[in-house]
């Protein structure tokens, strides 16, 4: 059985004025996308994760539910929860992250009256 990836509170940066599970989902997705959480890694149980992160178990439960809905983690009955080994799911999650990042960037560009391309060109312009 693969080793458990335990979490420490320092692994996450939480903003107490936003729903916590959303932030966990985002950050775990990012960990998976950048390969920090390798496919097949076993994740702690809800109880273990909640205790070591010192958050309400409901938060972890919701986080796992959301990640499972996104196809990033899978639960095998009686064995535990694992990062998916389905490369396609991970790939589509990365694509989704990229799209969200671009969308945010476009938002920023629009706020200063530029298109995305103009923004990038301007940022790369030499003095």
């Amino acid at each position: 059985m693969p080793p458990i990836r335990m979490w420490k509170p320092e692994d996450f940066r939480l903003d107490p004025s936003r729903p916590l599970y959303e932030q966990f989902v985002e950050q775990v997705r990012a960990m998976i996308a950048r390969g920090e959480l390798e496919p097949g890694t076993r994740l702690p149980s809800v109880r273990e994760a909640a205790a070591s992160l010192r958050v309400n178990p409901t938060t972890i439960m919701k986080t796992y539910q959301e990640l499972e809905r996104l196809g990033l983690i899978v639960t095998h009955r009686g064995q535990g929860t694992f990062v998916t080994e389905d490369e396609a799911a991970i790939g589509s999650s990365r694509r989704e992250l990229a799209r969200e990042a671009v969308a945010r960037l476009e938002e920023t560009a629009r706020s200063i009256g530029l298109s995305l391309d103009q923004l990038l060109a301007l940022a790369r312009e030499k003095e």
């Binding site: 109880r47 205790a51 010192r54 178990p57």
Partner: peptide, 15 residues
Amino acid sequence: RESIAQAVVGELADG
């Protein structure tokens, strides 16, 4: 404090 908080969460997870 941390170990107390941890113990509390551990107990709660049973729901």
